[in-house]
Write a protein that binds this DNA or RNA. Sequence first.
DNA 1: TAGATTGTTAATCGATTAACAATC
DNA 2: TAGATTGTTAATCGATTAACAATC
Lengths: 219, 219
Amino acid sequence: MEKEEKQIKPVPEPTLRRLPKYINILTKLKRESVQFVSSNTISEELGLDSIQVRKDLSLTGIAGKPKLGFNLDELLHSLYHTLNWDNINDAFLAGAGSLGSALLGYKTFKTYGLNIIAAFDNDPEKIGTTLNGIEILPVEKLTGMIQRMHVNIGVITLPADEAQTVTDMMIDGGIKAIWNFAPVHLKAPKDILIENAQLSQSLGVLTHKLAEKLKSNPL
Amino acid sequence: MEKEEKQIKPVPEPTLRRLPKYINILTKLKRESVQFVSSNTISEELGLDSIQVRKDLSLTGIAGKPKLGFNLDELLHSLYHTLNWDNINDAFLAGAGSLGSALLGYKTFKTYGLNIIAAFDNDPEKIGTTLNGIEILPVEKLTGMIQRMHVNIGVITLPADEAQTVTDMMIDGGIKAIWNFAPVHLKAPKDILIENAQLSQSLGVLTHKLAEKLKSNPL
DNA sequence: TAGATTGTTAATCGATTAACAATC
DNA sequence: TAGATTGTTAATCGATTAACAATC
């Protein structure tokens, strides 16, 4: 076991979900021209444990300086790199409804490594129009274009009953990863990466906890 | 320790996040007039472990029948009840941008126990208009209306730099829970429930895993 | 040097998974 | 009855937290 070869530990998913929070707060501190930041400062801002912050940060491969903390620029770079947000991944979006359109309007996605280069829909009214400079194309072209353009990420903002069909089309085209907003479980081969972003999951946690809270403390 | 008093175990958060998935698949089965369903059927449909499904379901307080499985209607009811989706919680939304507008258009939220009854914005162009029958009011009215109408849930779909101010206004009015889509950590007293629904968290998991995947298996 | 902060190793906690008894 | 499925108790696994040594 040589010291030389940097031991790469997998980054646990809970940690991955916290990294964007670190980026948020560090970006704010950067605007205030802060140069070094301690795990304690971060943990206080985010209501986390400072040990956890240190553990999370160490998983991105950065080293801090005792007594000083972490160099802000280095740290941000390390976080961006771990999330692969220092690369830009091209993506296709399927379903130009209201949520889809909202996502097409998000210019900040490029900061998050995501570049939606075209959208697909089957509504003739929408096809041919553009949103935020992104053209809306007929769904029939989806498979072929993924193939030709080697697009890796598909974003699904379709109604439940259309999501699986379009998923299959994406997979046929050779998509590698799907970001799914449709309220269904998508079936796909194991080697296709599926990340669900259903609002219902988060909402369920909220409504359940609220009910518990009101039960123990009515009014 | 009497057998009588139903022992109420807290429902772990990972379980809560799976419950909506069960509802999805069970609702589909109900449309197909299925009456009983086994934990195995559910686990196969969702790519989960059947033991986990049984454990999750038992936490909602339902009992299945050996050899038969779970009564579909009872099970759905039990799931809805655990999430408190058999009640309707009134909510105010702040920030009628594209994401906010998309949420205002979601009629299905009522199935998820959420009823957005008014929206707030500070854009004079938007104030006074309605979206999906929901009126957009000036932000100044937010605190007072939460107070008067005893609204428990606030939905925040504002830009990062406005989110904390409006959060404070909601808390002043007596809000109990906040569903936060803004890419910031909201500061609030411990007794205020905050559930974050930031897209960046989910996207970060996707982009990180995709990078790992491409590293080990380029093209 | 003393003190603050990092970073690692160990302990704890909680969720998942396994084993198996209970029941229709 | 035999077989399938539930449901509980125990084992495992992984993430969080604690303890403490290392270092500037």
